[in-house]
Amino acid sequence: MTTQVEAHSGYKYKSDSNRLGLWLFIISDAFVFGGLLVSRFYLFAGERPELNQWLGVIVTFVLLTSSFFMYRADTDISYGNVKGFTRNILVTLILGILFLIGVVGLEWPTAPFSAGENAMSSIFFTMTGMHALHVLSGVIFLYIVYRNGKKGLYSKERHFPVEAAAIYWHFVDVVWVFFYPALYLMGNPV
C-alpha cells in the first residue's frame, strides 16, 4: 500500500486534483456569466439591441472553429503528436485573436450606441466585455502552452496544461453559445 506521501505526490494524483480545481473555478465563473444573462433578460425581456448580424455570425463562427482546433490540439498531444499539437494550438490562438478583433475592434466602435448611453448599451458592452476578457486571458494561456509545447515540455503522458487550456477554452466558447443568441437573436430589435 502506498504511503500517503507517495500517493499524494504522483503526477496523476496532482493532475486529478488540478482538474477538480479547474472545474470548480469554471463552475464559479459560470455564475458570473449566469448573472449577466439573468440581468439581460430582467432588463429587456423581449427586446435586443440592433447589431450587425453579419459580424455576429462571423465572430461566432470564428470562435466555434477555434474550439475545433483546440480539440484537435488536445487530441494530438494525448497521442504524442507534438507537431500536430503545436500547429493546432497556434491556429486556435490566432482564431481567438481574430475573435477579439471582431468584437472589440469592429463591433464595439460600430455599435449603434456608446457604452454609457442607456441600460441596453450597458448590458451589451459589459457582457461582450467580460467575455472578451476571458477570451483574452484564454489567448494568453494558449500562448504560454504553445511556447512550453514547443520547448518539448508536453508528452503523451504529461500534458495536463494542454487539457486545462482546452477545458477553459471550451468553457469560454460555451459562454458565447449562450451570449450570442441572447444579444443578437432573441427578441425584437430596439
Binding site: G116, N118, A119, S122, T126
Partner: peptide, 21 residues
C-alpha cells in the same frame, strides 16, 4: 461591478430614466 461601471463609465444599469432598474 455594475455600480462601478455606472459610476466610472457612465453606464445605466440602475438608471430608471435610461431603461435601468
Amino acid at each position: 461591478q455594475m455600480v462601478l461601471f455606472d459610476r466610472v463609465f457612465g453606464m445605466d444599469f440602475f438608471n430608471p430614466n435610461q431603461g435601468g432598474n
